[in-house]
């Protein structure tokens, strides 16, 4: 399923809120969190990661992967965490509003 516009940032922030992950890890984690509903393609993922890093929501570092290879890991920064909270609140309001709209008779 295609991602809803504006949700990619939220999902990425959420995906690395517990631990640092590399690109493939992030896309796997999103798939897992959404029970397979959303698959993030590399063409969307990497531009988003680099953009969010430039916005200082993410920090990156090179580390060792499970397969003992050099991989680029992303983790949340303080401002990223704040952004996650803000996005969550915003999403809750959107979801609530949409739900109410659909239930309205």
């Amino acid at each position: 399923m295609e991602l809803l516009p504006g949700t990619l940032d939220l999902l990425i922030l959420k995906a690395i809120s517990l631990e640092r992950l590399h690109g493939l890890g992030i896309s796997r984690r999103i798939e897992q969190m959404t029970r397979g509903t959303f698959q993030v393609k590399p063409g969307s993922l990497f531009p988003a990661l680099h953009r969010m890093e430039n916005q200082d929501w993410l920090a990156s570092e090179w580390g060792e992967s499970e397969s003992n290879r050099r991989a680029k890991y992303y983790r949340l920064t303080k401002s990223g965490r704040r952004q996650l909270e803000a996005e969550k609140v915003r999403w809750d309001r959107v979801a609530l509003a949409i739900a109410q709209a659909l239930e309205a008779s």
Binding site: H22, L24, P42, F46, S65, K72
Partner: peptide, 16 residues
């Protein structure tokens, strides 16, 4: 170079 490495890692891990 870093970008290339980052993307290659993705592809090669998938392949592995």
């Amino acid at each position: 170079q870093e970008l290339d490495e980052e993307l290659r890692f993705y592809v090669e891990t998938l392949a592995e």
